[in-house]
Amino acid sequence: MSYNIAVIVGSLRKESFTLKIANALTKLAPDTLKLNPVTLYDVSFFNQDLEATPPADWLAFREKLQKSDAILFVTPEYNRSIPGVLKNAIDVGSRPPGKSSFLGKPIGIISNSPGPLGGVSAAKHLQNILPGISGPILGQPETYLNGVGDAFDEKGNLTKEPLQKVLQQYLVAFAAFVDRQSKIAA
């Protein structure tokens, strides 16, 4: 069985390490996972006043989440937390109340940073935000990618072999997690 995975890219920068990691994941994924990077360029700001007639971009984003079997967040760390654009996307996707597009979907989290801590604070904040609006979150392996600044060539290809191995190990664990959760839900 193959599962469709929405890979939410938590950065808007066109040459971001986060987007490069999301693209690398699509190439490294096992056959059981079809990863679809979802950028947040077009997700407008959440405003509860608009909920009665949600903007088309909110509906399109929610539909991408609803059509997925699981969701994988790939995020940088901004000021010891997640980027505002990612929090906004979570707010948009989690509404209307009780009808979160994340609800019941297995969740994975990969954080990254060119620095030594690998975005651990961003990952921990996601672990605090998502319960109650999402499905189960993969607890192990925790993946905080540090030193990603020199991991890609000029074309954006992942060339750092140890990082490739970490991502492959994570994807194998995530695939097994998604499969287990799918069987539990059935």
Rank of each mutant, 00 (worst) to 15 (best):
residue 17 F to C: 02
residue 93 G to T: 14
residue 158 L to Q: 03
residue 176 A to E: 13
residue 67 K to G: 02
residue 60 A to R: 09
residue 168 Q to N: 13
residue 161 E to G: 02
residue 15 E to P: 00
residue 119 G to T: 04
residue 31 D to N: 15
residue 53 T to F: 11
residue 152 F to D: 11
residue 42 D to F: 10
residue 70 A to S: 14
residue 164 Q to C: 14
residue 57 D to P: 07
residue 119 G to F: 05
residue 74 V to Y: 05
residue 31 D to E: 15
residue 34 K to I: 14
residue 168 Q to Y: 12
residue 132 G to N: 00
residue 147 G to S: 04
residue 63 E to W: 03
residue 163 L to K: 14
residue 152 F to I: 11
residue 181 Q to D: 09
residue 66 Q to R: 15
residue 86 L to P: 03
residue 93 G to M: 14
residue 107 I to K: 01
residue 162 P to Y: 13
residue 16 S to Q: 10
residue 53 T to L: 11
residue 99 K to F: 12
residue 183 K to D: 10
residue 159 T to Y: 05
residue 17 F to H: 07
residue 134 S to M: 11
residue 140 Q to A: 15
residue 49 D to V: 02
residue 186 A to K: 13
residue 63 E to G: 05
residue 15 E to G: 03
residue 164 Q to V: 13
residue 20 K to V: 01
residue 68 S to E: 10
residue 97 P to F: 15
residue 108 G to Q: 03
residue 116 P to H: 11
residue 132 G to E: 00
residue 27 K to G: 04
residue 2 S to V: 14
residue 164 Q to G: 10
residue 139 G to V: 05
residue 59 L to Q: 06
residue 58 W to T: 03
residue 31 D to Y: 10
residue 52 A to Q: 12
residue 82 I to F: 07
residue 127 Q to F: 09
residue 70 A to V: 10
residue 59 L to V: 05
residue 168 Q to F: 12
residue 157 N to G: 05
residue 78 Y to T: 10
residue 17 F to Y: 00
residue 177 F to H: 03
residue 36 N to C: 08
residue 36 N to H: 14
residue 77 E to P: 08
residue 167 L to A: 08
residue 92 V to G: 02
residue 169 Q to N: 15
residue 31 D to V: 12
residue 170 Y to W: 11
residue 94 S to L: 14
residue 151 A to R: 04
residue 167 L to K: 08
residue 176 A to Y: 06
residue 35 L to R: 06
residue 24 A to F: 14
residue 113 S to E: 13
residue 59 L to F: 00
residue 125 H to S: 05
residue 12 L to K: 13
residue 111 S to G: 11
residue 4 N to L: 14
residue 137 I to S: 07
residue 25 L to A: 11
residue 121 S to A: 15
residue 116 P to C: 08
residue 40 L to P: 06
residue 68 S to F: 06
residue 12 L to P: 05
residue 20 K to S: 07
residue 14 K to G: 00
residue 77 E to R: 08
residue 177 F to S: 02
residue 69 D to N: 11
residue 180 R to E: 09
residue 45 F to C: 12
residue 33 L to K: 09
residue 11 S to Y: 08
residue 153 D to V: 07
residue 112 N to M: 05
residue 164 Q to E: 15
residue 32 T to E: 15
residue 26 T to M: 01
residue 61 F to H: 13
residue 163 L to T: 15
residue 1 M to Y: 07
residue 150 D to E: 14
residue 33 L to W: 08
residue 155 K to Q: 09
residue 111 S to L: 10
residue 39 T to G: 14
residue 64 K to T: 15
residue 35 L to E: 09
residue 132 G to Q: 03
residue 8 I to Q: 11
residue 89 A to T: 05
residue 28 L to N: 08
residue 126 L to R: 05
residue 148 V to Q: 13
residue 85 V to G: 02
residue 49 D to I: 02
residue 133 I to Y: 02
